[in-house]
């Protein structure tokens, strides 16, 4: 009786959540199997796998997958590495520590669009950009970042935004590190390297896992930074899966193919999540 009642009382929220998830997913799957061209609304009807085939055989598809994985992987390595280094560096008391922390964390509060605009016009611009000014100072030819190294530019922009997130998580965790443990290690004759490998890294295993999980989820769907800076170009050099889907839907006006891409993106995200959870799930369980 109480079980039935409990189920009944839970039902509304469970049903709502289910609808929330199932309806868009269902619609995406449905659209991916019909002909749905915004320019030719009169042509419709079930087309089977042909939208998928079209998306797969698009010459931009494999580069987009590769770019997505490169982008996620590089940003993860840079943010976790830099985040660790900076967090360790500022985990001591010195004058101006509070101000410095706020400054270090502030890039995270900037909107992705604004961040990308800022980098595009103030850092990477071949004439006005800070990098160009530096290059000019040393008498070098300024690099046209967005043209010559588009994916690297996007990686820099996203890393700049997300390193503060890693710092924030790591520094809070470092603050819980038992100072007597550090002292015991000092007495045991452990130098900084040994303390880092045997004490600090194991202590940070869980926050590192959290940072990797959250960032992976966000970086698989990076869009604003690419849209504002390179628009996926030149060619498809900086097109990732999210941008390819956008290009299909709103530049090619083909909702059907874009939906097929969306379904593929869901599958890709699940594959990545599966490996991630297997890889770092153990750390979370401890």
């Amino acid at each position: 009786m109480t079980r039935t009642l409990a189920r009944l009382l839970q039902a509304p929220s469970v049903i709502l959540l289910l609808l929330w998830m199932v309806v868009p997913l269902g619609m995406t799957i449905y659209f991916s199997t019909i002909r749905y061209q915004l320019l030719y609304p009169e042509r419709s009807g079930f087309v089977g796998w042909s939208n998928y085939e079209f998306f797969f055989t698009d010459p931009a598809f494999w580069p987009a997958i590769l770019n997505t994985l490169t982008l996620v992987g590089s940003v993860l390595i840079i943010t976790v590495g830099l985040g660790l280094a900076i967090a360790l560096l500022i985990d001591r008391s010195f004058p101006g520590r509070g101000v410095l922390r706020v400054l270090l964390i502030s890039p995270f509060f900037i909107m992705p669009t604004v961040n990308a605009l800022l980098w595009k016009n103030m850092m990477l611009h071949p004439i006005y950009g800070l990098f160009a000014v530096f290059a000019g100072f040393f008498g070098l030819e300024p690099i046209e970042w967005l043209k010559d190294a588009p994916l690297l530019s996007v990686i820099m922009i996203v890393s700049w935004q997300w390193t503060p997130f890693a710092i924030l998580i790591f520094i809070t965790s470092l603050q819980n590190f038992d100072s007597e443990q550090k002292e015991a290690a000092l007495l045991d004759g452990a130098g900084f390297r040994a303390r880092f490998i045997y004490l600090i890294l194991p202590h940070l295993a869980r926050p590192i896992a959290v940072v990797i999980m959250i960032q992976t989820i966000f970086h698989l769907s990076i869009f604003a930074e690419i849209f504002v800076t390179t628009s996926g170009g030149p060619g498809v050099q900086s097109t990732n899966l999210a941008f390819l889907i956008f290009a299909q839907a709103l530049q090619g006006f083909d909702v059907g193919v874009a939906s097929a891409g969306g379904v593929l993106a869901i599958i890709l995200a699940n594959i990545v999540a599966f490996f991630l959870i297997r890889m770092i799930g153990r750390n979370l369980a401890v």
Partner: peptide, 21 residues
């Protein structure tokens, strides 16, 4: 001298064992 070079060993109030070992 550095703590590790003094030939002393210390037992702490909170034990300070390394939790991952």
């Amino acid at each position: 001298a550095d703590p590790g070079d003094r030939g002393v060993a210390m037992v702490f109030q909170t034990y300070a064992l390394y939790p991952h070992m």
